[in-house]
Write a protein that binds this DNA or RNA. Structure first.
Length: 465
RNA sequence: GGCUCUAUCGUCUAAUGGUUAGGACGGCGCCCUCUCACGGCGCAAAUCGGGGUUCGAAUCCCCGUAGAGUCACCA
């Protein structure tokens, strides 16, 4: 493959947000272009003004930017290119391969219903008018399929594919509102933009013969086609849709998923390189990506595995990077020492941010643990626990040098091991954190510093007595 | 209904004619351990069914079955 020639594109329609299905198609097209040093184009297929949702284009761009999927060209809007479509439509008319549809929408709808009643596929070409007027732009312009035959083609993922004559029809090129259909516009655009490889979902397999007949009519060599498997919803076998709980990809950002984790997860949902590696950096994915290893069958979207991959990526972040991302998400300044404590514990940044205000608020809040809590896991009577705690306070108080977790452990641990670890460490830890669950007492003491440690321990001692 | 695609543990997948069918997630158990989390170790768990081809089939072929896609002035 000539690396200079690879041009791929992602061509969403601006009908709302991007969900994981669309994003994965974008990822594959982008990875492929990256791998071969090619060009990746963002094209907006806004030829259906009815379905267009305001703000979608910005939203789509923001989503791609968050993921780090950068485009080399675009966004190119199809609505800005109506002249180009007219030009090619004119070519087809001149060749006698396009004609205005004389029927009303109701009449066509009647044909369709008749076909359905007869349990036959609807084919407009069976009602193709014998003669038509010149196209004046007020009627839909239809393609006149020049040759009804079986088409066979090669798909980069599926191999040889073919479809019979039922897949060919006189489809609409230009709608009565002057906008082209997807079927026509994407072919013109891919040609003019020099697209070499098309990645798209399997819903387009059955219309591929239509495209191939149009390529032939325009004397174009079609680009390489790679059909992506569907992403299915978590329950059942249906294609993932907004109704099935498909979320806006930017919702994942809000919840504290890392973009690199998202890319890692989606890339592996329907593709896997050789070997058993599961966690990949984006660079590694680019290097490893092979279009031929894309899966043929659909994959269920498994939130649990996404969570796991996100956690893996969080753990691999530098502590400073983690803290900064946490700050970006929460909008608050984050204590670096606390951040270091929760980096291994939180599966998402959102969970991390929450930990900071709940389980890990012991730096800000003065704990006042009850006697019950102080003894809960201590395996010791109150009197004994009090004695041990008093001794622990003495030990800590006698430390003249540094006050790090390691040094505190050196002082306390031998004693605790001697008289019973749970009897010493549990009350001590609860005294410092006020929580049933928390990091170990040495870490806590190191964070709190000598004065606050002694204050908290003393307060707990009073409660025990 | 026509046309078309797909089919390995619950899930994501590896094995492109020869493996005790491998890994990961999730589940369960054990270890580490004052608790929680992290970490380590282990267990259960699959080739949709039936025919062929072959010394040998998850892999190739055929027939079923199941699921999916499509048959728009949507993409």
């Amino acid at each position: 493959m000539n690396p200079e020639r690879v041009v791929t594109r992602f061509a969403p329609s601006p009908t709302g947000f991007l969900h994981v299905g669309g994003v994965r198609t974008a990822i594959y097209a982008w990875l492929f272009a990256q791998k071969y040093g090619g060009t990746f184009i963002l094209r907006i297929e806004d030829t259906d003004k009815e379905r267009e949702v305001a703000g979608s284009i910005e939203h789509i761009q923001e989503s791609l930017k968050w993921l780090g999927i950068n485009w080399d060209q675009g966004p190119i809007k199809q609505s800005d290119r109506l002249d180009a479509y007219k030009k090619y439509a004119r070519q087809l008319i001149d060749k006698g391969l396009a004609y205005p549809d004389p029927y009303t929408e109701e009449e066509v709808e009647k044909f369709r219903q008749e076909a359905e009643v007869q349990k036959k596929p609807f084919l407009y070409r069976e009602h193709r008018p014998a003669a038509t007027d010149a196209w004046d732009g007020t009627k839909p312009l239809r393609f006149k399929v020049p040759e009804i035959k079986r088409y066979t083609w090669h798909d980069l993922v599926r191999g040889e594919l073919s479809a019979g004559e039922e897949a060919l029809d006189d489809f609409i090129l230009i709608k009565s509102d002057g906008y082209p259909t997807y079927n026509f516009a994407h072919i013109v655009d891919d040609l003019e933009m020099g697209v070499t490889h098309i990645m798209r979902g399997e819903e387009f397999i059955s219309s591929t013969p239509k495209f191939l007949s149009l390529y032939a009519a325009l004397s174009i060599t079609p680009p390489q086609i790679a059909t992506m498997p569907l992403i299915l919803g978590p329950d059942g076998h249906k294609k993932l849709s907004k109704r099935d709980g498909a979320k806006d990809i930017l919702d994942y950002r809000k919840e504290g998923y890392l973009p690199e984790a998202m890319i890692n997860f989606l890339a592996l949902l329907g593709w896997h390189p050789e070997g058993e590696q599961e966690v990949f950096s984006v660079d590694e994915l680019v290097k490893a990506f092979e279009i031929g290893r894309v899966q043929k069958s659909g994959a269920k979207f498994d939130e649990a595995k996404l969570l796991w991959i996100n956690h893996e990526h969080i753990k691999r972040l530098s502590p400073e990077d983690f803290a900064q991302r946490l700050e970006a998400l929460s909008g608050n300044k984050v204590d670096r020492a606390l951040a270091a404590l929760i980096q291994d514990r939180a599966q998402t940044l959102g969970e991390a941010a929450q930990l900071l205000t709940t389980e890990f608020d012991f730096l800000a809040q003065e704990p006042s643990p009850s006697k019950e809590l102080l003894l809960q896991g201590a395996k010791a009577e109150a009197v004994d626990a009090a004695t041990y705690l008093a001794h622990a306070i003495e030990l800590v108080g006698s430390m003249s040098e540094g006050f790090t977790a390691e040094e505190i452990k050196e002082v306390i641990f031998p004693y605790a091991t001697d008289v019973g670890r749970s009897a010493v460490l549990w009350p001590m830890r609860v005294a410092l954190s006020g929580k049933e669950k928390s990091p170990d007492p040495f870490t806590l003491a190191g964070l709190l510093g000598r004065e606050r440690t002694i204050a908290r321990l003393s307060r707990a001692l009073a409660v025990l007595k």
